[in-house]
């Protein structure tokens, strides 16, 4: 009986974390659409977004929007540097090598962040007020509303970028038909470079949104990145809409599972869903444009 009364509350927190998963998944998909590379350091961009904003806000005492803006710029720069120093030299290597190199980058980024900014978990003040709002009998943190609105705006921005601009079309072309893209004079390396920037920016944005709700520590990026990837696979690998759907589904299911199983098993839920979806429908819920492609 008492379990069911928690459901609406869990649903609201599930939607909040689902929005974050959706953003992380979008970061993966952005890079995959340009190059069919999977960047396992995506979660570290999220972590860095939160931690660097905290640094500028609390240590340098800059105003909130300025701190967030600088943090996003820095993380985008890190994304560019990571492409140039890790992915670009290995662009012709096999999957295993790329996988291990991005995992190495992930180790490097998380431990360097622990070294520079300290290993304590960090939290940011909410964007506006801490008093929970009452919506339909459910208390909702104002930050959750901010997360949803910001996610929506970012989604519209990314949709316009990938479907309504020449740049987005060029990015997609360089992934689906590399030879054709070469013949049309699209620089594939430049596209991957830009995709890394966009994906790092989205990741940092997600990090700033999530840090007021959940604590961010130097080691929390890896798991968040993995769950974002699971969300992208769940919804349909390589589709923006799939990433968003997968993110929300994963967030809600994970959150609702808290009502029925011990909290410690929460992390196993996502991976259990992953194994199930990979077994029964590897294309994901919405289907994937890449499944017949060369690399998988």
């Amino acid at each position: 009986m008492s379990t069911w009364t928690y459901i609406p509350q869990l649903l609201s927190s599930g939607i909040t974390i689902g929005a974050i998963y959706a953003l992380v998944a979008l970061g993966f998909v952005t890079i995959a659409r340009a190059s069919q590379i999977i960047n396992f350091a995506q979660g570290e961009f999220v972590m860095l977004g939160g931690v660097i904003t905290f640094f500028f806000l609390k240590v340098m005492n800059l105003p909130y929007p300025l701190a967030a803006f600088i943090a996003i710029l820095i993380v985008i720069l890190i994304g560019f540097v990571m492409h140039l120093s890790v992915v670009y030299p290995l662009r012709k290597a096999s999957i295993v090598i790329l996988l291990m190199a991005t995992l190495g980058a992930s180790i490097f980024l998380s431990s360097t962040s622990g070294l520079l900014f300290g290993t304590l978990p960090k939290t940011l003040p909410p964007f506006s007020g801490e008093r929970p709002l009452q919506l339909l009998g459910v208390s909702v943190l104002p930050q959750s509303v901010w997360v949803l609105i910001s996610t929506l705006i970012l989604l519209i921005f990314l949709y316009l970028l990938s479907h309504r601009t020449l740049l987005g079309k060029a990015m997609e072309a360089s992934s689906t038909d590399p030879l054709g893209a070469d013949l049309l004079g699209i620089s594939r390396n430049l596209m991957v470079f830009l995709a890394f920037g966009v994906s790092a920016g989205v990741g940092a944005f997600a990090g700033i949104l999530i840090t007021p709700v959940f604590f961010t520590s130097y080691s929390s990026g890896t798991l968040l990145g993995l769950k974002g990837f699971i969300a992208a696979v769940l919804g349909g690998w390589g589709k923006n809409s799939g990433a968003i759907l997968g993110g929300f589904v994963l967030g809600i299911v994970e959150s609702l599972s808290l009502a029925f199983i011990p909290a410690g098993y929460k992390d196993a839920i996502a991976f259990g869903i992953l194994l199930l979806i990979l077994h029964f429908r590897p294309k994901g819920i919405l289907g994937s444009p890449f499944m017949d492609s060369r690399r998988w």
Partner: peptide, 28 residues
């Protein structure tokens, strides 16, 4: 049997998922 149907990145992710589930079970 179910996992080895997969290839490439998905095989990597599935085995990684198995490892993470194992860790959670160990801790809990």
């Amino acid at each position: 049997r179910p996992i080895l149907k997969l290839k490439g990145y998905f095989l990597a992710l599935a085995t990684l998922g198995f490892g993470e589930i194992f860790l959670v079970v160990l801790r809990e």
